[in-house]
Design a protein around this nucleic acid. Structure first.
Length: 248
DNA sequence: GGTTATGTTATTTC
DNA sequence: AGAAATAACATAAC
């Protein structure tokens, strides 16, 4: 569930509660001021990458779904509730999530120019940031949330396929134009992914992620755990070019 | 039943 | 000290 587009979709769903007061807040999450939340008015909802923020007067509730997180509206499921917040017209319940309170202004903590789904995303800056670690593998660079917030393992695999770049390519060896196009695809694919969610497209039309065959070459895809830490990569050895330093 | 997995952080190890 | 590996968290699908 938890790549950037999923969180933007959640924000769109939860925005129905803006302007409403909290009737009840409960859950197992630690360091949440449950009692203080009650009566507070939800002012705004924001996302940054895979995080969502419920903004109240003077503080922000931050939720990250991590790997197994789930949320459900107006219902509880038979599992330990991490955080449930009831508003005047409905409630939202989070499970297996990481929830925190942020006191500082969000703009002191987050830089939205790195969020691929934010209007102020700065592609040129992302390219500079990636190039700053020229020895890194591109499959790792794409998952760096300080460079491309919101890109997860699914988007990573799809983007590399579309840009025809092998996941084990060394960042410093990828030509500028290729890298630029790769970053652009991070944005366009994230937007497409958001559309799939909005339209309820299931299963997601992944081209390579969790797939068996290359849709371009009809060749079996390779699956390998690459990078640090090792993450699943699905790729085509025929059409995805491996950029490596010259041998010898 | 074992393995794997859309993610991040804390701890341990080198 | 600091980088890098490992564990931890918690859940469902294969």
């Amino acid at each position: 569930m938890p790549e950037g587009p999923e969180m933007v979709f959640l924000k769109e769903q939860a925005e129905q509660f803006i302007g409403q007061r909290v009737l009840e807040a409960k859950g197992a999450a630690k360091n949440i001021p449950y009692r203080i939340l009650v009566e507070q008015e939800l002012r705004e909802i924001k996302t940054f990458g895979k995080e969502i923020f419920f903004c109240f007067q003077g503080f922000v509730l931050r939720v990250h779904l991590m790997l197994f997180g789930k949320y459900i509206f107006n219902e509880e499921i038979n599992r330990e509730l991490t955080l449930g917040v009831a508003f005047e017209d409905g409630e939202i319940n989070f499970y297996a999530s990481d929830c925190r309170v942020i006191q500082e202004p969000l703009s002191d903590v987050y830089d939205w120019t790195t969020d691929v789904l934010h209007p102020s995303f700065d592609a040129a800056k992302a390219q500079q940031n990636i190039t700053r670690k020229p020895d890194q593998l591109i499959c790792d660079a794409l998952l760096d949330q300080t460079i491309l917030a919101g890109v997860g393992n699914g988007i990573k695999n799809e983007v590399l396929f579309r840009a025809q770049i092998h996941p084990e390519s060394v960042v410093g060896e990828i030509p500028d134009l290729q890298l630029k196009s790769l970053i652009r695809v991070c944005v366009t694919l994230s937007i497409e992914y958001l559309e799939w969610i909005r339209e309820g497209t299931v299963p997601r039309p992944w081209q390579v992620y969790r797939q068996k065959e290359c849709p371009r070459d009809r060749v079996p895809l390779r699956k390998a755990r690459l990078g640090r830490p090792a993450r699943s990569c699905y790729f085509c050895e025929v059409c995805q070019y491996l950029y490596l330093p010259d041998a010898l």
